[in-house]
């Protein structure tokens, strides 16, 4: 486990400059969108976290383009690690795996690091939102922040499944298609945002089920993944 952690940390430290560059580009995009009042591309709503999906309140504007900020959140959220988490997931170092087999423990470390990354990515933007906009509150931002972080984790797991099935490209494509499909159906998004039993929004149990399902799938794929 110690070797795994050090291997993961090293892979994250490598090429730090490129990570910083991607982060800077996103910071620019983020700042522009947070200050945006241009309704056609989803003007900033002080009651909804930047990365949270929304339902278009203008019948002349389709749902997908109304969610530019959410799309940017997910796109840069996936791009910023530059595939390092997936590469760690796929790491097949013979020196290590001849000593201990690759299995659930390896996947759990990957999952823990992915969760930590999603939380950190979201928290930084929460803080930045408060710094840039004085017209919002933690109470209004927090539920959307939790949802956005969860969706980002789900998309990372989809990308991971793609890697495990032999095609990173297909993983990214699948993640993009899934999110685009979800955003394209305003009525479905409206249902997800609406509260269900015990005032819990429908997205919460749906997201939880999807994340758990993908995690189980990825674990299954990892344990069956040959090293050649």
């Amino acid at each position: 486990m110690l070797h795994d952690i050090r291997y993961l940390l090293q892979s994250l430290r490598d090429k730090a400059g490129l990570h910083v560059l991607v982060a800077l580009v996103y910071a620019l995009v983020f700042t522009q969108l947070v200050h945006s009042d241009f309704i056609a591309y989803g003007a900033f709503d002080p009651h909804v976290f930047f990365g949270m999906f929304r339902v278009s309140d203008d019948p002349n504007i389709a749902n997908l383009p109304f969610n530019v900020s959410s799309v940017m959140f997910m796109a840069f959220g996936l791009a910023l690690p530059l595939g390092r988490f997936s590469r760690y997931l796929m790491a097949a170092e013979p020196m290590v795996y001849v000593r201990k087999r690759r299995g659930v423990a390896h996947f759990l470390l990957y999952l823990a690091s992915a969760v930590a990354y999603c939380v950190m990515f979201t928290v930084v933007q929460l803080v930045a939102t408060f710094a840039l906009r004085g017209d919002t509150s933690l109470r209004s931002q927090l539920p959307g922040a939790v949802c956005a972080a969860g969706v980002l984790l789900l998309l990372m797991l989809i990308v991971g499944a793609g890697h495990l099935l032999g095609s990173a490209v297909m993983g990214y494509l699948a993640a993009a298609l899934v999110y685009a499909a979800v955003l394209s159906f305003g009525k479905f998004d409206g249902w997800l945002i609406a509260s269900g039993a015990c005032s819990v929004p429908h997205w919460a149990p749906v997201l939880l089920l999807c994340v758990v399902g993908l995690a189980v799938l990825d674990t299954f794929l990892l344990c069956g993944n040959e090293m050649y």
Partner: peptide, 26 residues
């Protein structure tokens, strides 16, 4: 004991540390 393909040592750690980590697995 195995060497298959290029060994994937942790570059930011020393040679001795890499050996210790591997040996400590078991």
């Amino acid at each position: 004991g195995v060497i298959i393909e290029n060994p994937g040592f942790v570059g930011s750690e020393t040679g001795m540390q890499n050996l210790k980590y591997l040996a400590d697995i078991n």
